[in-house]
Design a protein around this nucleic acid. Sequence first.
DNA 1: GTACGTCGACCTCTGGGGAT
DNA 2: ATCCCCAGAGGTCGACGTAC
Length: 258
Amino acid sequence: MAREEAWKMQELDRIKTERELLAQERSIAAAKDAAVLSFLQKFSEQAGSVQISNNPINLVQVAENQTVPVEKPVKTPENSSMDNFVYMSSSRWPKEEIEALIRLRSNLDMQYQENGPKGPLWEEISAGMKRLGFDRSAKRCKEKWENMNKYFKRVKENNKRRAEDSKTCPYFHLLDALYKEKTRKVDNSVNIGYGLKPEELLMHMMDGQGEQERADQATTENDENENVGQNQDDDGEKEDEDNYRIVGNDPSSGIIME
DNA sequence: GTACGTCGACCTCTGGGGAT
DNA sequence: ATCCCCAGAGGTCGACGTAC
């Protein structure tokens, strides 16, 4: 019991820290926006005919030689001379972008579930990504989400085990945690969950996780072929279960639309 | 060079929900 | 009841990176 209380306190501290970090990120993004706008203004004055994408943030990141997200000039038949080029988004999603997408999608999914009608969900996610410095269209976000889940499920169904420090699929643990929480929410929503504030819901989820972990410890491994979306005790997860954090539905991730 | 894993992009199909 | 729109699932193909 005391251990559980301590764990809850730890989680609350972590939530607080994450919110502070997010505030920092937002201020950085705002600063970037301002810098980019001035840059674009200067740039357009100097080269009036140059085509520039509507991706100021990423242009700055290129200028600052940062790695994420990666941008590269792309030659097109129209601009093969490279005198005029457009910046295209990198096709590959860096880990940071994927994690941001998962968090945003999870947060908004929870919001939409609470608020009823689904609005322009992916537009909001795309806007949220932009605020975090990642320029991805709603369509790209949606496709990435679908491909990600598709591949995740495929791997799960194939019953493959991968090293925890695998270079690839670093987001699997996030998706895994998300599916677990979704399942748990469905289980709990009959009695609790709806009508609660996100923070309150988190506390319920955290309670549920504690109970779940205790239950997991008490049970034996007997569910080798459970479906990912149906069972949170899927195989191959016990080994790293203690490392999971509730990220997907964690309101503390703070990426909630103002 | 080849096999394999991973991923992006595009497509089709299906089910749910709203409008008529 | 029917139509339409949308989200999601699933399939497929090709590109890319890596291990062998």
